[in-house]
Nucleic acid binder design. Structure first.
Length: 107
DNA sequence: ATTAAGGCATGAA
DNA sequence: GTTCATGCCTTAA
């Protein structure tokens, strides 16, 4: 049970500090067809300290509006604290998107 | 043991 | 900027 769920959390630990990935990337990495579900699973994050769910952003670089650990403001601070670059309300996908760096998550 | 319905932090045209 | 469509898991009877 929670087969995919567990896999998603596993991928979260593979996200390097200062970088971000999109829900679509994760869903694709797991061969899933529902990026929505990825977000749903992140909400079930049993250990936010172990799974950097704050490094997951929208496909356009924006943050989620319902970050379950203090709001997107906290999420943004965490990312900036790690070295991620923000442009207004968006993340710099050219420099912070892991996939944009030629690095793949893993399947 | 099986079946049923609901809920969700997205993506793309 | 807005709208439409999707999948997987959880709990109950």
């Amino acid at each position: 049970m929670a087969n995919m769920k567990n896999k998603i959390f596993q991928l979260l630990t593979r996200i390097p500090k200062g970088f971000v990935v999109t829900y679509g990337d994760i869903s694709k990495a797991l061969n899933s067809k529902s990026p929505r579900y990825v977000g749903r699973v992140l909400h079930d994050n049993p250990n936010p300290d172990k799974y950097p769910c704050h490094r997951v952003v929208f496909a356009d670089g924006r943050l989620s509006k319902s970050y379950a650990f203090g709001g997107l403001s906290v999420q943004r601070e965490k990312l900036e604290s790690e070295g991620a670059i923000f442009d207004n309300e968006r993340v710099d996908m050219e420099k912070c998107h892991l996939s944009s760096q030629g690095v793949a998550l893993r399947g």
